[in-house]
């Protein structure tokens, strides 16, 4: 509870005593590139595999001849967009992005780089954390969109290679009964998760005390806490927006 208060205080100090806007612009772009290039491969691999697995498992469970085969494609689409792409991707990113943010800030704290900024009269919290949060808010929804596409593509590939479904049926299934709100919903999730991952990890890293060992602990705790936050937020958003 005490650390939640400290977290809220940190978040509010991000927006006061800021430096020139141009400074943030450049830092944010740098962070975007870093997050993007760092994570795109793992996101691509994970999402195409889960798309493929969803396709195969759905087909295996739909044994009834009454259900047309194109339903497999619809299920892959729904699962990918609503849950797999945003949540799975963000859990993976909590590990990848979260640990890197916490590790970097933790190292800067224990080597007095944070103090060096403060002595210069720079608001170290906003200088270091704000670009990371902004970059996550930009990059993670992009990665989630990309993951959704790749998951569907993975499902398609598995369907064709496994002789489960024809191209025609798949395309038909992917398009039928398409609810556009699901894409909006996935993006809302992506934004919320992006904020949670980046801010929680930054919080853990920024307040690291001690030495190299504690930096490692901050990283681990950043990953665990942001994963839990993502899952809790996932559940809450589903309750809130789908009912």
């Amino acid at each position: 509870m005490k650390s939640f208060g400290k977290y809220m205080i940190l978040m509010s100090t991000l927006f006061v005593r800021r430096e020139k806007f141009s400074v943030y612009w450049k830092l944010t772009i740098d962070e975007c590139i870093l997050i993007g290039t760092d994570s795109i491969l793992i996101v691509a691999i994970v999402s195409s595999f889960i798309g493929a697995v969803t396709c195969i498992q759905t087909a295996a469970n739909l044994v009834s001849p009454l259900v047309p085969i194109y339903v497999v494609a619809s299920v892959v689409r729904e699962m990918s967009i609503l849950e797999l792409a945003p949540t799975f991707t963000c859990v993976v990113l909590a590990g990848k992005v979260g640990s890197s943010i916490a590790g970097q800030l933790g190292t800067m704290r224990i080597t007095e780089q944070v103090d060096a900024l403060e002595v210069m009269g720079i608001n170290s919290a906003s200088y270091l954390i704000l670009p990371k949060i902004l970059a996550s808010l930009i990059t993670i929804p992009m990665l989630v969109t990309f993951a959704g596409l790749l998951a569907i593509l993975g499902g398609y590939t598995a369907g064709i290679l496994g002789n489960i479904i024809s191209t025609q049926d798949f395309i038909y299934g992917v398009q039928i009964d398409f609810n556009e709100f699901n894409v909006t919903f996935a993006l809302i999730k992506a934004f919320v998760f992006a904020f949670l991952i980046s801010s929680i990890s930054a919080f853990e890293g920024y307040f690291t005390k001690g030495g190299a060992l504690e930096v490692g602990q901050s990283s681990t705790s950043a990953v665990v806490k942001s994963c839990i936050a993502v899952l809790v937020a996932d559940l809450s958003l589903a309750q809130l927006l789908l009912n």
Binding site: T111, E112, Q113, D115, A116
Partner: peptide, 8 residues
């Protein structure tokens, strides 16, 4: 600073 505290 003690360790230099250069931005790495």
């Amino acid at each position: 600073f003690q360790g230099g505290a250069l931005f790495d």
